[in-house]
């Protein structure tokens, strides 16, 4: 417990993606030792698993409602946790995957708790990103890897490097400006295809990837052409991975400058 004037504290931990497989010992310890645990799990079975680790696990799931802005939902989740922190409790937010990866709520809760003088920190977990590197055999260091929340490609003018991997998150709600929907349809994904077609040919092969959340299942990997994306069945848990469409261009100017430095080093040395 914090030794400062504020006795409440907050830790947001990642429970990983797969039930039983990914939860680290430190995250488990935080769950077990907290006064209250707030759970944002990927499904109800995972939440039942968390409930076995602590007597007071409170689901954040009831805050969601179709037709209600997810921003409002997220703020309510932050407030639910902060209310207990302010009451002097050691609070643990247990979030599926990594609590800091494509997860607004944990970052905001920690920011608010700290601004009010409470001890607050994050413990990492195994995210869907980590899983896809393993399951798809991708090394982000080979060509580079860009990650975008899919809607951001439509809401803003972003620049894509097609010589690197591109990973798109939350494609199931791409283009939802209201933040009030749990799914958007083919028309929205068609606009996404039009944006992506600026940098990729329509026959470029994409991967729809879904991590296994239950240990009795395996990851789902579907491959399809960019042009087929609007008609694809894409759910909340799916992530789109777009492999590079071309090799990186050689920067001859910079290489020449580096060579000049190399030569100067040899002379100086």
């Amino acid at each position: 417990m914090s030794s400062g004037a504020h006795t409440g504290s907050l830790v947001c931990v990642g429970i990983g993606m797969t039930l039983g497989s990914h939860l680290g010992p430190l995250a488990r310890s935080h769950i077990e030792q907290s006064d209250v645990v707030f759970a944002a799990a990927s499904d109800g079975i995972v939440e039942l698993w968390l409930a076995k680790m602590h007597a007071d696990v409170r689901s954040l799931q009831p805050h969601y409602r179709e037709g209600k802005s997810r921003m409002q939902t997220y703020r309510e989740m932050v407030e639910a946790m902060l209310t207990e922190v302010r009451a002097g409790k050691r609070v643990c937010g247990a979030f599926y995957g990594h609590p800091g990866v494509f997860a607004w709520v944990p970052h905001k809760a920690i920011e608010v708790a700290r601004s009010e003088g409470y001890a607050a920190h994050m413990e990492p977990g195994i995210s869907a990103e980590d899983c896809l590197y393993a399951d798809l055999g991708i090394d982000p260091g080979k060509f580079g890897c860009q990650h975008f929340e899919a809607s951001q490609l439509l809401f803003y003018q972003r620049r894509i490097d097609p010589s690197a991997y591109l990973v798109l998150w939350q494609v199931g709600v791409v283009g939802d400006q209201s933040l009030k929907r749990f799914a958007t349809g083919a028309g929205y994904r068609q606009i996404l295809v039009e944006v992506l077609a600026r940098d990729y040919p329509l026959d470029h092969q994409l991967i729809i990837y879904r991590t296994a959340t239950l240990p009795t299942r395996q990851p789902q990997v579907k491959r399809l052409a960019l042009s087929a994306l609007p008609q694809a069945d894409i759910g909340m848990e799916d992530t789109i991975v777009i492999p590079p469409a071309r090799l990186p261009e050689v920067d001859s100017t910079m290489r020449a400058r580096l060579s000049a430095l190399d030569s100067a080093d040899v002379i100086d040395g």
């Binding site: 799990a41 079975i45 939440e47 997810r70 997220y74 899919a150």
Partner: peptide, 28 residues
Amino acid sequence: AILGKDRQALGALLGQDPFCCYINPGKE
């Protein structure tokens, strides 16, 4: 349900409805 790898069926047997798992806005 487990051998059928049917997560929704298993969840239903355990009294669990499908979850929403978005925790990130696109334009915060």
